[in-house]
Design a protein around this nucleic acid. Structure first.
Lengths: 200, 200
DNA sequence: CCTACCGATCGGTAGG
DNA sequence: CCTACCGATCGGTAGG
């Protein structure tokens, strides 16, 4: 039996990987199936054999990201100081994979239009991220580790927005923008305890 | 004499206004000269009589924005607390003109690619904004109005990034995101003096 | 400013 | 998966 499902699964993964790269360079609307297919070494019609429409391909890209996030979530800590530390570590990790940062910055900006196929995805994505951050700040507040008068709602909202805003600036000028340092600065300003430490 | 320069100038302004709206909806790459022309009531070839290429039209859009900013600059205050207040007021003003917020969020994200025709514009734009914010925080620090241990460099960088990040989130969900409140929350957290007050 | 056109490119389909 | 094709749309030009 030559026809193995495995081969097709690998092909799909290859296509999605190439798609992420092309989206990062040109955005969703600016990308063409032909360019993506070229990088995989097939024709655009061949690509459409695996993903029937351009939109289905976008959905697959977002689904893979969700799957990765869920995998990470499984290992993840409950909301709190460690959770915020982990988000900073995630930002540091992203800086070593600029393509992913590119992709999300571009897609998120494109998707603010309600009729964009990824609009709902990002709305939900932001809501989840905000919720996680807000819960973390609430946990800190309960332990008296949040500065007096600091509203966990505001803190969570601004923290998530800051992560995104910093990423766009960092993309456009990687020398002048210290992404991780800025996040740490921001967090430390809200805390009554040191952000680091406690690990031997 | 029927051929008045005035008519042409007005036409150009009309075209730029329509362009801003279309960019906001579709981004630069996603916009077509035909759609822009349609809104002005001419053909796309007619549009190219006024702006010889698609890129020249983009340049005109950015130039007009710069002109408006310069006009505002003329009335503007020196770096300091009033300057930061004014930036918050600008954000509040932008919320009443979502099209402009849309336009800049989308263009900025598109333009992170080095070969984008607006790349240099945004790099310069961010540098200026950061510089203005940093100078403001420095002035505050000199007057002892900045919290102890707060680095003006970090404060300026994060403030500008926060403005941008909040705008994207606000665009995607205008009910749940309080843009101005978040900015005020952030600023107040860095200050030793009340952000408001002092005006009768 | 328009009509009329160009070559290029797009997403998608038919038919194997 | 490919070849071959479709209709639609793109930015730009010629020629008035």
């Amino acid at each position: 039996m030559t026809g193995s499902y495995l081969k097709g699964r690998i092909r799909r993964e290859d296509i999605i990987t190439a798609t992420v790269a092309v989206y990062a360079e040109a955005g969703y609307h600016g990308s063409s199936l032909r360019e993506i297919a070229r990088r995989v070494g097939i024709t655009h019609a061949g690509l459409l054999y695996y993903f029937p429409t351009k939109e289905a391909l976008l959905a697959a890209v977002l689904e893979r990201r969700d799957a990765e996030d869920t995998e990470r979530e499984r290992l993840s800590v409950p909301p709190g100081l460690d959770a915020l530390r982990r988000l900073v570590a995630l930002a540091a990790h992203n800086m070593r994979h600029p393509g992913i940062v590119d992709l999300y910055a571009r897609l998120a900006a494109e998707a603010v239009t309600v009729d964009h196929p990824a609009h709902e995805y990002f709305e939900q994505h932001y809501r989840m991220a905000r919720g996680y951050a807000v819960e973390s700040f609430r946990a800190l507040a309960a332990r008296g580790e949040l500065r007096a008068g600091t509203d966990p709602e505001w803190a969570g909202l601004t923290f998530v927005a800051l992560m995104d805003g910093l990423q766009v600036q960092w993309l456009s000028n990687r020398e002048e923008v210290d992404l991780v340092g800025s996040l740490r600065f921001y967090l430390q300003n809200l805390l009554t305890v040191p952000l680091d430490q406690d690990q031997p």
